[in-house]
Simulated assay, not measured.
Amino acid sequence: MWDKAYVINLNERVERWEWMQGQLASAGVEAERFPAISIQDLAELPPPPALRQFLLEVDGDGSGFERKLWATWACMQSHLAVLRLAREQGLASVLILEDDCEFEPFSRAVLCRIKRQLPYLGLDLLYLGGTLKKGGSCSRLSSNVHAVSRVRLAHAYVVSASVYGRILAEAPESGLPIDWYYSEILLPSIRAGISTPQLAFQRLDDVSSIEGVARARKFRWRRFWSRAFWRLRYSF
């Protein structure tokens, strides 16, 4: 399904890497830790003006703006560094995980199914989880994969070598966060999919390395019943 997997993890977030060991084991995923690029590493590579302008328009110039700007840029650089490494290693595909990735308990079973389906799909990118955005398409490709054209979040996804070069060339110049670049620029022109059901979510009640605050839990009945259905179906 992928040649290698990496978990992006800041050196100071030791507790997240330790927590991820359990997540990886439960999903049956073998992955290596990839030291995340920190804000301090980017003293000579500041965020581009276009990214600053984008975040100003989206979030406004609040007290934590500068930190979020630099953290967003560092996040992109970490993802790009993994892709450069994958290209140097000659990997046909790589799974990129962020260290707040929480797998569903049925992930191992669904991943086994997806592995059998992927050779016939010819995907350039596969999300294991993400937020489907309005205006994008979503259509069935196989029993466990849907084609998508607009997805936000980049905490768990597989990238094919077919798009390594394009991402590395375009993303830094896009003026967008890495997940927005994928959603708004890359996905509409490649063959992308998302696992069905979704297998990976961003961990809640944990301080985000970008936002600097914990993501609050919001109860949604539709998501609750959906996850309950999939857990019942694939847990046996």
Results as ranks from 00 to 15, higher is better:
2 W>P: 07
4 K>G: 00
5 A>D: 00
7 V>D: 00
8 I>V: 11
14 V>H: 10
15 E>H: 15
17 W>T: 07
18 E>L: 14
19 W>D: 14
21 Q>Y: 05
22 G>A: 11
22 G>Q: 12
28 G>K: 09
29 V>A: 05
34 F>L: 05
36 A>S: 07
36 A>P: 02
38 S>K: 07
44 E>H: 12
46 P>K: 09
48 P>D: 03
50 A>Y: 06
52 R>G: 06
53 Q>M: 06
57 E>F: 06
58 V>Q: 15
59 D>Y: 14
59 D>F: 13
62 G>Q: 10
62 G>L: 07
63 S>L: 11
63 S>G: 06
64 G>D: 11
67 R>G: 11
70 W>D: 09
70 W>T: 08
71 A>C: 03
73 W>N: 01
74 A>G: 05
75 C>H: 03
76 M>L: 13
76 M>E: 13
76 M>T: 03
76 M>V: 10
77 Q>I: 00
79 H>F: 05
80 L>F: 06
84 R>M: 12
85 L>S: 06
86 A>G: 07
90 G>H: 08
91 L>I: 01
92 A>S: 15
92 A>K: 14
96 I>L: 05
96 I>W: 00
98 E>N: 05
99 D>E: 09
101 C>Y: 00
101 C>I: 09
106 F>K: 02
109 A>V: 07
110 V>D: 03
111 L>K: 06
111 L>A: 07
113 R>Q: 14
114 I>V: 15
115 K>E: 15
115 K>P: 03
116 R>Y: 09
119 P>L: 12
119 P>T: 14
120 Y>M: 12
123 L>A: 09
123 L>T: 10
126 L>I: 03
127 Y>N: 02
128 L>V: 06
140 R>P: 14
141 L>S: 10
142 S>Y: 09
142 S>N: 10
143 S>K: 13
150 R>Y: 13
153 L>Y: 06
154 A>C: 09
157 Y>K: 01
158 V>Y: 00
159 V>Y: 06
160 S>L: 02
160 S>K: 02
162 S>C: 08
162 S>G: 09
167 I>M: 09
169 A>T: 12
169 A>V: 04
170 E>Q: 15
172 P>I: 07
173 E>T: 11
173 E>G: 03
176 L>W: 04
177 P>R: 00
179 D>G: 09
179 D>Q: 11
180 W>S: 11
181 Y>Q: 01
187 L>G: 01
188 P>D: 11
189 S>H: 15
192 A>K: 01
192 A>T: 03
193 G>R: 02
201 F>G: 02
203 R>D: 02
203 R>C: 08
205 D>N: 14
209 S>E: 14
209 S>P: 07
210 I>T: 14
215 R>P: 00
215 R>F: 07
215 R>D: 06
216 A>G: 11
218 K>I: 10
219 F>K: 14
220 R>G: 06
222 R>A: 12
223 R>V: 11
225 W>R: 10
225 W>M: 10
227 R>E: 14
228 A>V: 13
228 A>N: 10
231 R>S: 10
233 R>W: 08
235 S>Y: 08
